[in-house]
């Protein structure tokens, strides 16, 4: 499989009054056609910043280095003109809070059409037909009357469907979705996740899904990349990572989840809290909270390396976790 999007050694540093914040620290991953990659981590782990760095949506005071390759083309060095065609054209984006991503004073139909004007040669008639087709695709019934409605007339779930319709307007090859269901109720989340998964299977898109919910990863993604404090802990096929996590953080996170079978025991807790990002750890960022910590963890930064077929881990205890 050839990667559509290849990220190598992505590093994002924010210059603040209190010094530099290392939000993303040497992250590499790739995603190919028809594949769903989940980027999972807790707040501040750098998952959303990584996603936004791909299409250069970060503010000016962010310093981005590393490589973002779109079908071999360097995105970080792209001209503004080329970047404009890529964003919303070949790469579609869906955000967490559709109400703040949609324009409140424009009807939904016009917002879909804007994207079609920018990225396609369709005439007005064909654009309307395409807009209706898109609404149908994302499961918004009664399309014609919906096109003239405003975002505030839509429910939360419908707004997210409309966001997805806009993102799909120009037939993107990759969809980047940043916590698309976090603000939604569980039955609506279920509908949206199945819609996204269905679109990937039908249209052969690639999807990068950022979430903090391991359940969303397990049910929706093919591969997963686990992030902690701006760094990648573990990547691999979802089935392998969930069955046999090979990073101490992934293992702890899975055991901290309540659910079936945890009733009669205490949840495993991860002591302490996520580290500050203004002074990156010399060794493993998770070492201060890790139950499997050893001397090398505080002195040598573990490198992400293959530990099993289609599974890589950056953990000095990876071999112990295999047992």
């Amino acid at each position: 499989m050839t990667a559509l999007l290849q990220i190598r050694d992505l590093t994002v540093t924010f210059a603040t009054r209190h010094g530099a914040v290392h939000a993303v620290d040497g992250v590499s991953f790739a995603v190919g056609r028809g594949e769903v990659l989940g980027l999972v981590g807790e707040s501040g782990s750098g998952k959303s910043v990584s996603l936004r760095a791909i299409t250069r949506l970060l503010p000016d005071f962010a310093r981005v280095s590393g490589q973002v390759a779109w079908q071999g083309e360097d995105v970080l060095a792209m001209s503004p003109e080329r970047l404009r065609r890529l964003r919303g054209g070949q790469i579609g984006m869906v955000f967490q809070e559709p109400m703040s991503a949609l324009n409140p004073v424009l009807p939904i139909g016009l917002q879909i059409t804007e994207s079609l004007i920018a990225h396609t040669d369709l005439d007005a008639r064909a654009r309307r037909a395409r807009a209706l087709e898109l609404l149908d695709l994302v499961g918004i019934a009664a399309g014609p009357s919906r096109l003239s409605q405003f975002p505030h007339e839509f429910s939360g779930g419908m707004r997210q469907r409309a966001m997805i319709a806009i993102a799909l307007a120009a037939n993107p090859a990759v969809l980047l979705a940043d916590e698309p269901t976090t603000a939604l109720d569980v039955t609506i989340q279920d509908q949206i996740l199945r819609l996204l998964r269905g679109l990937v299977d039908e249209l052969g898109m690639a999807l990068v899904l950022v979430t903090h919910d391991l359940g969303v990863i397990a049910e929706t993604c093919d591969r997963v990349a686990v992030m902690y404090a701006g760094r990648l802990c573990e990547t691999g096929d979802v089935a392998a990572v969930f069955a046999r996590p090979r990073h101490a953080y992934t293992a702890a996170l899975l055991q901290a989840m309540p659910g079936e079978g945890t009733r009669d025991r205490k949840l495993l807790t991860i002591p302490g809290q996520a580290p500050r990002l203004d002074a990156p750890a010399i060794g493993c960022a998770f070492a201060p909270r890790c139950a499997l910590v050893r001397p090398i963890c505080t002195t040598d930064r573990p490198v992400l390396q293959p530990v099993a077929p289609r599974q890589s881990s950056a953990c000095h205890a990876a071999a112990d976790l295999a047992a």
Binding site: V186, T187, Q189, D190, L193, R197, D213, L214, G215, V216, I217, A218, E219, T220, V238, A239, F242, A243, L254, M257, G259
Partner: peptide, 10 residues
Amino acid sequence: AVPRLVPGQR
């Protein structure tokens, strides 16, 4: 509707 923690049951 609750996503299960077991992959492959989609």
